[in-house]
């Protein structure tokens, strides 16, 4: 009988070894043409490709840094914030989905003082809807998750306010409700919910608008300075623009693969 026990341990050891190689093989698979799956990738959720509305393989946004003016920027911010019941709080605890930021903060690695317009020139920043979003990987409740079309969503119902996602996001795209936002919203619009104290929020690429077949609010009022489309469709407008103009993304060295491209 001694023999059997030896054999069992051997087999068990081999099995453990085998299982430990499985994630490694998946990780390697992630370096292929499709980097959508792998050990260090967030898992995806949701199958939004049915029903009416706009659908895409991978939604992306282009921001033309040359066409944006402070006035247009403000228009985009207002359109987003009023329609999504984003409160306006006078302190550091303000909530932002989209905001204007000086270029030296957006692209700190690639600034020099002689760029056209200077480094204080502003552009718009928002959640990048990363292909490999660190915020999604750390969320313990899956309150923030990635849809198959690349949109990083928030399920406000599920957020427990631990703020792991805020620590994980390398772009500061997320805001936390330190207080009840309702008193800070002038006229809450009924079509979109507000949030409560203790919940994290951020841009959702206007998923509720896409479901109705409309483009995001900011894109609509941007006077052509912003574009929205499907990265996976070679015939799409955004792909054509990407092929013809030079574009950069924020902190590419981190491997988050942002879905927001800045045209230079």
């Amino acid at each position: 009988m001694k023999n059997t026990r030896r054999k069992f341990l051997k087999v068990a050891g081999l099995a453990v070894l085998g299982w430990s190689m499985r994630p490694a093989s998946r990780l390697m698979a992630a370096h292929g043409a499709q980097s959508a799956e792998g050990l260090f990738m967030a898992s995806k959720h949701g199958a939004p490709k049915h029903g009416e509305g706009l659908h895409a393989g991978r939604w992306i946004m282009l921001i033309d840094t040359n066409k944006l003016t402070p006035a247009i920027e403000q228009k985009c911010i207002n359109a987003c914030h009023t329609n999504h019941n984003v409160p306006d709080i006078e302190t550091k605890q303000n909530i932002k989905w989209i905001w204007a930021e000086p270029l030296h903060n957006v692209f700190p690695e690639q600034m020099h003082e002689n760029i056209p317009g200077g480094t204080e020139r502003t552009t718009l920043v928002l959640c990048n809807h990363c292909t490999n979003p660190p915020c999604v990987r750390v969320c313990p409740t899956k309150a923030t998750f990635q849809r198959e079309d690349g949109i990083v969503m928030m399920d406000f119902h599920r957020c427990i306010g631990c703020r792991y996602c805020m620590a994980a996001c390398p772009y500061g795209s997320r805001s936390f409700n330190f207080m009840d936002p309702r008193p800070h919203i002038k006229d809450a619009i009924p079509e979109f919910p507000t949030r409560t104290k203790g919940v994290v929020e951020k841009c959702e690429f206007c998923s509720e608008r896409l479901a109705e077949g409309k483009l995001p609010y900011c894109v609509e009022v941007s006077e052509g300075a912003m574009m929205f489309g499907d990265l996976e469709d070679p015939e799409s407008e955004v792909r054509k623009v990407l092929a013809s103009r030079y574009s950069i993304r924020r902190k590419p060295e981190l491997g988050t693969e942002p879905g927001v491209y800045y045209l230079i």
Binding site: G46, H50, E52, R147, M153, D155, A211
Partner: peptide
């Protein structure tokens, strides 16, 4: 409805 809409993108 809540889960269908928010998590699955099913609206109908």
């Amino acid at each position: 409805w809540r889960d269908d809409v928010v998590r699955e993108g099913m609206h109908e």
